[in-house]
Design a protein around this nucleic acid. Structure first.
Lengths: 312, 312
DNA sequence: ATGTTTTGATAGATAAAACCTATGACATTC
DNA sequence: GAATGTCATAGGTTTTATCTATCAAAACAT
């Protein structure tokens, strides 16, 4: 058994097609075929059912492919150990980020980062907190950018900044007349919310103290899939919604008029880098942390007049 | 990087000597040297300091060797997956067993087992419960034979049998006159105990209800290292000790006169096979379980008139 | 139904590698 | 200072991985 055979095996499972898998591995189809056969001979079991189209792994093939993926992941860590020991900022890093941060935070630091560290291969994926933590624990992700605290003792949190919640409302709302608003000013029946799964949803319900109410008492008919949709809803249909501070950056002047900050203590969310307790790639993660903090205004780095809202 | 290189690396770390490591790997010294060098070149770091004698791994070498050992362990699991899927009772199995069971239980089933399953390579190691569980969790052991319940939710327990505690005492003890004894009959000042670390010690203290007493109140000057030593102590110096049932098997007739069973409910310990929740080698472990139960008397397989004593 | 395309296996040649024997360099020991 | 122990290097051999070319079978299309 060789690492190359395991790579071919995993590629074949991914593509379910000998020629395509081979191309992906930069070898010819006979080469990949032969090596998969050799592995099958060595183990004494058929790993793929080639009579089906596309080819499918056998029952035992699936188990072995799973272990092969683990082995390839663990073997990649050897280079990571070297990089980390050298302090080199190099290698692949898989970053998960929640959807309510991604479109506002990523553009701020990503360009700088990839220019400054051309040896780092960055893989970013947008995930809900729950999916992200699950992938982190399965070692399918190196680091996450999420709202904390999580209260998961397998995971280390490095707080990055504190982001205020602000209200975004139409002229027709009563609260539009106020300079600073309070949670009581928000009419739950005019409130636009994100769909289930976004951690910000739970926090907004907490701000408005709607937690205890039975959900069927209210009628959240329209649930948006993104912060951007929430804004459009307010603009087209009126009402009110709650946005994270970073999403205000690219508002037009007209849109800015519809923003109202909260009275102190301002409801706030804590944004952190999270990773497994015993993680590698510390130097890359450290570099990323520095790059993010470089583009975050000083006043957001400390939580002075804010009140961090609980999750879920 | 190849598996062979990792094997050579690990062998070199084990032997700290190129020629010996090479011999262990069934290759010549230059072959092993070259491959270790190639790995060093590929990673771009020196893994061993050859100027020292014996050779020692560098700081980063140690980290990489650790990961190499993990990789080799995980790669061995591929064959285990095949064996388990086939239901073949084959492969290596690493068994840990506590010292108060090992000399009495192992001879009962081991001969049968290795004759019946010649394809199984058995590695048995004697360890205290604590060491055993630690190794099990680090995947350095496949299965343990210990006294349960452990209350560790990473570990699955398969109870095998219930073993009575019995008293072993000299003629000079008052309790010698009784047919069945009670815990109150045991004079703590005449009691011989095993040294710290053996789970049976805690159980015996529990039987005699000596737990609450401050340890310095009593004077356990003589602490034995094995059950056999305990017997000798009673025989030579008088006093009383408590033995597990299986250790009575090879007593002489004269020694048997010094054994007293407890009144019902008899103090008892539960002996189990333990393993990690998600374990491979199920078929080997199942076979071992069957072989053990074959040599255990029926009446020990159920706990009818016994009272299982708590651990620790 | 029959020709065409797709897909994976096979054969033979070639290039890469792993390995062996023999020997060299360096340090330690007697 | 010769002998020994230890690891590296050199050159040749065997093994293995890969390539190109081709075949056989199945799927698809006309």
């Amino acid at each position: 058994m060789t690492f190359v055979q395991l790579e071919y095996l995993v590629a074949l499972d991914t593509y379910r097609h000998f020629a395509m898998a081979a191309e992906n591995c930069c070898v010819t189809q006979p080469t990949l075929s032969m090596q998969v056969q050799k592995l099958e001979d060595e183990l004494g079991v058929k790993l793929f059912d080639r009579s089906k189209q596309p080819v499918v792994p056998t029952e035992i093939g699936q188990l072995i492919i799973k272990q092969a993926r683990l082995l390839l992941r663990e073997s990649a860590k050897i280079k990571d150990i070297v990089d980390e020991h050298r302090g080199t900022v190099a290698g692949e890093i898989r970053v998960g980020i929640i959807p309510t941060l991604a479109p506002y935070l990523l553009p701020l630091f990503l360009d700088n980062f990839i220019k400054k560290y051309p040896q780092v291969k960055l893989k970013v994926i947008e995930l809900t907190t729950e999916q992200l933590i699950s992938k982190l624990n399965k070692d399918l992700l190196d680091v996450g950018i999420v709202v904390t605290p999580l209260q998961d003792d397998r995971i280390t949190e490095y707080p990055l900044f504190y982001e205020e919640f602000v209200a975004y409302l139409s002229e027709s709302e009563k609260a539009y007349q106020k300079e600073f608003i309070l949670s009581e000013d928000i009419d739950p029946n005019h409130l636009w919310l994100l769909e289930e799964g976004h951690c910000i949803r739970g926090q907004i319900l907490n701000i408005c103290e709607l937690r205890k109410q039975n959900s069927h008492m209210r009628n959240f008919e329209y649930e948006a899939g993104s912060i951007e949709t929430l804004k459009r809803m307010v603009e087209h249909y009126g009402g009110i919604t709650i946005l994270p501070e970073l999403s205000l950056r690219d508002l037009t002047e007209k849109q800015r008029l519809q923003v109202r900050h909260f009275h102190v203590p301002t409801p706030t969310r804590e944004v952190s880098l999270v990773m497994l307790r015993h993680h590698l790639k510390k130097s890359i993660i450290e570099a990323m942390k520095t790059e993010i903090l470089n583009v975050i205004p000083e006043k957001m780095k400390q939580n002075i007049s804010g009140k961090v809202i609980e999750l879920g």
